[in-house]
């Protein structure tokens, strides 16, 4: 717990890292100053892109003691305002799951190799980033914890599968090797509560270590303070649950 007599410092900057196919992509890296070593986090940004909220979230995790990296998953689409880039990605039907998973694995390897990291790396994502975080954690056993906040389309029907999204993330559940925290809203339509229940049943079936919380009076994206769906009480509680979960599994 922070007290006012503590030293606190965070170094945050844009860096370059190696992503899928050996491509160099940019990322936002924030790390606590002071005596390490520190656990690390990878942040999978949401559909609106590599935006202000994600840079702030990266900083927030660092302030709480985690070396945190947020790769620009839309790097290859080009550069402009985060919104201009994100709408281009949207128009092109999203980014292929395989590329995202490899970019996130690259981010994990980047922080894992830093001398001040304690060897533990978690992954967090919201919205499409929650889905991507889950996919990445299921396909890479080097992640030590995963946090899926209202990730839609974790449960996909056969007609939703395409070349970019060839496998429903639910199918990878059996491969998940780390604990998962899931935060969801009862009023969300993506994912709807029945799909969250289906996801939970799959985790239970395979004996996974999971902790799911379904918040009443909350819909999609209830952490986003700049959107009408923001829910103060649920958001405060959700962040508490996130840091308690990480303290338990990454310390």
């Amino acid at each position: 717990m922070y007290t006012t007599d503590m030293y606190e410092g965070v170094l945050a900057e844009t860096i370059t890292m190696t992503g899928a196919n050996g491509d160099l992509i940019n990322a936002y890296l924030a790390r606590p100053l002071g005596k390490g070593s520190f656990p690390a986090m990878v942040l999978a940004h949401h559909m609106p892109g590599w935006d202000q909220w994600y840079r702030e979230a990266t900083f927030k995790f660092a302030q709480h003691g985690y070396v945190t990296i947020s790769p620009n998953l839309y790097f290859r689409t080009g550069h402009g305002t985060p919104e201009d880039v994100a709408v281009k990605v949207r128009a092109d039907g999203g980014i292929a799951d395989a590329q995202v998973v490899d970019d996130l694995a690259g981010a994990m390897e980047h922080v894992h190799a830093l001398p001040y990291v304690n060897g533990k790396v978690g992954i967090f994502g919201t919205c499409s980033g929650g889905r991507h975080a889950y996919l990445a954690a299921c396909q890479n056993s080097k992640f030590d914890a995963v946090i899926d906040c209202w990730g839609g389309r974790v449960v996909m029907t056969p007609d939703q599968l395409t070349d970019k999204f060839p496998v429903s993330p639910l199918e990878y559940t059996k491969d998940l090797s780390c604990p998962i925290l899931g935060l969801f809203g009862e009023e969300d339509s993506s994912p709807p509560p029945e799909q969250v229940k289906q996801h939970e049943e799959e985790l239970k079936k395979h004996g996974k270590n999971y902790e799911f919380h379904m918040y009443p009076n909350a819909g999609h994206g209830f952490f986003y303070y700049d959107r009408p769906n923001y829910r103060q009480e649920q958001s405060v509680d959700g962040w508490k649950k996130i840091f308690a979960f990480l303290e338990k599994h990454l310390a």
Binding site: M47, G93, G94, S128
Partner: peptide, 8 residues
């Protein structure tokens, strides 16, 4: 991207 309902 969350819904993937898009046309050009």
């Amino acid at each position: 991207m969350c819904t993937m309902i898009v046309e050009k």
